[in-house]
């Protein structure tokens, strides 16, 4: 097991290295640079001074080496666009906000989604299944910004129950969480329904029935655990998605999360910010992948690593 973990950690570092290097060169390959739009108006001397200050006058490869060196010291640099703002500090202050909103939404969404999926599978073809199918289709097809506008119109403008946007009080969480839940519920209910139906057709379910178990026990003991694999698989990408995918939601509800900075920094060629957030996402994803593999082995003994028990 120890050998396995060491191997995994080394592989993680290698992956991280590749991701960071690729992103670095890709970002620098985009035409334009962070200072281009503003620097045009400046006298040449001033302009050169600015480029020198941020190290942008050096060849790309030299910049790359410098960046990697800083990264080894866990220094992500400071923003090229917002003077005086460190990239690390920005991530540290915005990521937890996204994590809070997205995390609550993901937990509620997964719980409800899995339950609905089970309900749909057990009532295949009957009305609960039909209703859940419609909800799932609506949930996946309606764009988030349409949904948000409708929610704001109804809950804030018409009924006046909730603030239309803002941040700071617990009540500000309600609408964003509701909106973000819907997609999760839709996805999970479909996945769980499908895999549950597949499991219900397995021979060992018949064995369990022939043993005299009640339908309830058959589902809880034999079907559920064997149907949860797909749900666990998508859980990791949804967890990373909390930080990347909530961009529109954060924007429309004025939530100071990390999604906002990620997108704007790309548009503005804010090299250090793009790199910083990418490193953050990459680390998050790689760590989650590792967690996922551990969860797999807990659920399915067939995946258990050789030697480990």
């Amino acid at each position: 097991m120890a050998k396995y973990i060491v191997k995994r950690v080394l592989a993680m570092l290698l992956t991280l290295f590749v991701v960071v290097s690729l992103t670095f060169f890709l970002v620098h390959a985009i035409p334009g640079d962070p200072l281009a739009s503003m620097a045009k108006a400046l006298p040449q001397q001033t302009r050169e001074a600015y480029y020198a200050r941020y190290g942008l006058d050096k060849p790309v490869f030299e910049q790359y080496v410098l960046y990697m060196k800083n990264l080894l010291r866990l220094d992500l640099g400071s923003s090229l666009k917002f003077a005086g703002r460190s990239v690390g500090g920005t991530i540290a202050s915005t990521a937890p906000i996204s994590g809070l909103v997205g995390g609550i939404a993901l937990l509620i969404g997964t719980a409800v989604g899995v339950l609905l999926g089970i309900l749909a599978a057990l009532n295949k073809g009957k009305w609960p299944d039909q209703v859940i199918r419609v909800v799932a289709i609506l949930g996946t097809t309606i764009p988030v910004f349409v949904l948000i506008s409708l929610f704001q119109l109804f809950f804030a403008v018409k009924m006046g129950w909730l603030p239309s946007s803002g941040w700071g009080k617990p009540i500000h969480l309600v609408m964003p969480v509701m909106v973000m839940c819907i997609g999760t519920i839709a996805t999970y209910s479909r996945y769980v329904r499908t895999s549950m139906l597949e499991t219900l057709d397995q021979d060992y379910v018949l064995t369990a029935r022939a043993k005299g178990l009640s339908e309830f026990k058959i589902v809880t003991r034999h079907v559920l655990r064997n149907s949860l694999m797909p749900a666990v698989t998508i859980f990791v990408s949804s967890m990373v998605g909390i930080f990347t995918g909530a961009f529109i939601t954060e924007q429309m509800f004025s939530i100071p999360g990390i999604g906002f900075y990620y997108i704007t920094s790309i548009n503005q060629r804010d090299y250090t910010m793009v790199m910083g957030t990418t490193v953050f996402y990459a680390v998050l994803f790689i760590v989650m992948q590792m967690v996922l593999d551990i969860i797999y082995t807990l659920i399915d003994p067939r995946i258990r690593v050789a030697g480990g028990k």
Binding site: Y204, R225, P301
Partner: peptide, 8 residues
């Protein structure tokens, strides 16, 4: 091969 529950 398929009549036993693989996770129990």
């Amino acid at each position: 091969m398929t009549s036993l529950n693989p996770t129990m």
